[in-house]
């Protein structure tokens, strides 16, 4: 059916890189999401405000613009600043690093909302009871709060992951050889764009289907202590 004319391995390499970019950005997004959620629910006004600005701004700007801003804008910003201080500096960002950082940063804002919701869903009495038993704050968070938060957070995080993995295709515009870029290369070399973009679409669909199955298993794991009626 699909004749990939020897470009199959290239696509597979791209596929692997897409998964790698996706997993790395997701890890960063989860980390930022936890910090962001803490920042949103803490008592410190300034921190609340900073977290609010973060989620408001990031969710209002297209991913593509942010990717371009980081990849092209940040080096020139640093260079201009250095010139201002009398240095001559050339900065080039690594596409992988800037891609992961940008995607992680964007979806960190979305997972902030997920974690904030999950935190609010755990009854306050749970934490109070743990503290009353003498658990230090961090231990109580780790033993009592987090395991219960996962239950509420996983559906939302699964959603974030689904959107995130598709957003990684945008990194192809900064020339990282992930799946999208690889299929672009193959499409241009063979002059069969439809074939290769269709192949890429198929591989993304595989990722989506596998992710859906995984999410289901994760959800049942997180709900393992919950009785169903």
């Amino acid at each position: 059916m699909l004749d990939l004319q020897g470009y199959g391995p290239l696509l597979l390499e791209g596929f692997k890189l897409t998964v790698l970019v996706g997993v790395s950005s997701m890890a960063l997004a989860i980390l930022l999401g936890m910090v962001g959620a803490w920042a949103k629910v803490t008592q410190l006004r300034a921190v609340n405000w900073a977290a609010g600005v973060y989620t408001t701004v990031v969710r209002g700007v297209p991913e593509l613009v942010l990717i371009l801003l980081v990849y092209y804008g940040v080096p020139t910003l640093i260079q201009d600043a250095a010139t201002g201080l009398g240095y001559d500096l050339r900065v080039n960002l690594n596409p992988f690093a800037s891609g992961v950082l940008t995607i992680g940063f964007i979806y960190g804002a979305f997972s902030t909302e997920v974690f904030r919701g999950a935190y609010l869903a755990v009854p306050a009495g749970q934490m109070e009871a743990a503290r009353a038993c003498g658990m230090p704050r961090l231990m109580a968070a780790r033993r009592i709060l987090l395991p219960q938060m996962w239950r509420y957070a996983i559906p939302g995080l699964g959603n974030v992951w689904m959107v995130l993995i598709k957003a990684t295709a945008l990194i192809s515009v900064i020339e990282l050889q992930e799946l999208m870029r690889a299929s672009q290369v193959a499409a241009q070399a063979t002059r069969q764009p439809f074939t290769f973009y269709a192949a890429a679409a198929g591989l993304y669909l595989v990722l989506t289907i596998v992710s859906m199955a995984l999410q289901q298993r994760l959800e049942s794991w997180a709900n393992r202590g919950v009785q169903r009626a």
Partner: peptide, 23 residues
């Protein structure tokens, strides 16, 4: 619905814009 929700928009865009060139 599954196709359009399960693949990146960029792929869909290229599939239609560049892909149509094949036909």
């Amino acid at each position: 619905i599954f196709f359009f929700r399960g693949t990146p928009l960029l792929v869909q865009l290229f599939l239609i814009y560049y892909g149509s060139g094949q036909f």
